[in-house]
Nucleic acid binder design. Structure first.
Lengths: 199, 199
DNA sequence: AAAATAGTTGACTGGTTGGATAACTTCGGC
DNA sequence: GCCGAAGTTATCCAACCAGTCAACTATTTT
């Protein structure tokens, strides 16, 4: 009952775009509202603070991405293949965003997580949460690779964390250099970290 | 001639601390001035903008750190030993800053570089510049390791870039998790990336 | 001691910030 | 056809923002 609206969805999507393209600190609630075509009063009807909006926007973003992760990390593919598909997916996503935003923008979760880690507990926790979900997909693939004997690594959780660190680091480099060529050696690094036996 | 002052140095050091502890976006010129005990008029006597201050503060910070890098990467030590010393140095620095700031703060250059990569060209370029100086030390050590046959890697520049990506990624993880334990496996990752032959 | 230089002061500007609010409109269910 | 829930609107605010400025003071050179 009552009237319906797509304002909330619009705010979530615009907030994600604007903050990913710029940064949390340089995007104001006014910016988000005017780009979304929503009044500020409506904004505070749906969200109790800027922090709140951001955590919701990132949660929503992951919700939309998760099916892709399910597909990529499906046990239909052999474990090392899954890691390769994941690398391809990251490159494709970054390429598409570069086109959309006119800039390489790196990893959305760790960008905002890093920016606000020391200042906003809720955002830091949401970043941890989303990172954890990524890592558990990696743990699955790396664990299977270990079982299959494809790989020198022996601790799937630890190795997944190192691989994740490498990938977000490479994405950060790509953002700072504004250059997708930085991502050329994504697989090389990932495979070196898991210790693939023979090319 | 004319009167002398340590206000400029004070501003550089306070700006570095405050921005590293928080972020560029949440630290204002007023914050920096009041913590440094300097009036805003004096600030704009020494620096023409906030951007200007930040690039100068990071340049100054590197100037003070460089002697440590000269020592760590001195060819007096065998190449893999240099990488080990570097990992120890990173952990020690992070530990000391955690104590000082009450928080794990990650890599100062890539934090601010990532925050402003899409928005402030001068800061992005300064970040690239400082990263480049770090990497050239890594290239030296990895190049020597390759010559000595210690390592499976064969392209020092490329490998140094991957190692750097891994390290800034791990530092970002440590910041987001506010936990130095994340850095426990720093060497493990670095050595896996360069492909050390036998433990 | 005068002139030139180097640094200081604090009030000021115009615009923006996150957030609040009260009156209003639109709608589904009865 | 009316009631209450859901969403909208315009306006307001105090705090804060980066940056400006003209008057002032301390120091060194001549």
């Amino acid at each position: 009952m009552g009237r319906t609206s797509d304002a909330k969805q619009k705010l979530l999507s615009v907030a994600f775009d604007l903050i990913h393209e710029n940064s949390y600190g340089t995007v104001s609630v006014d910016n988000i509202c005017s780009r979304a075509g929503v009044n500020k009063g409506s904004f505070y009807y749906f969200f109790k603070s800027k922090t709140d909006l951001v955590t919701a926007a990132y949660e929503e973003h992951w919700r939309l991405k998760e099916p892709d992760y399910e597909r990529i990390f499906s046990s239909a593919s052999p474990p090392l293949k899954r890691l390769g598909l994941w690398c391809d997916y990251i490159r494709a996503t970054q390429k598409q965003r570069e086109k959309k935003y006119g800039h390489v923008c790196g990893c959305p979760y760790t960008s905002v997580g890093g920016e606000l880690a020391t200042q906003d507990k809720k955002i830091r926790q949401k970043a941890q949460d989303l990172i954890g979900r990524h890592i558990s997909y990696l743990v699955g693939a790396i664990g299977d690779a270990i079982l299959a004997g494809d790989v020198r690594a022996d601790d799937a959780q630890l190795t997944a964390e190192l691989v994740h660190a490498f990938v977000i680091g490479l994405l950060l480099r790509a953002k700072i250099y504004n250059d997708l060529k930085v991502l050329r050696h994504l697989e090389a690094g990932v495979f070196a970290l898991v210790g693939v036996r023979q090319p």
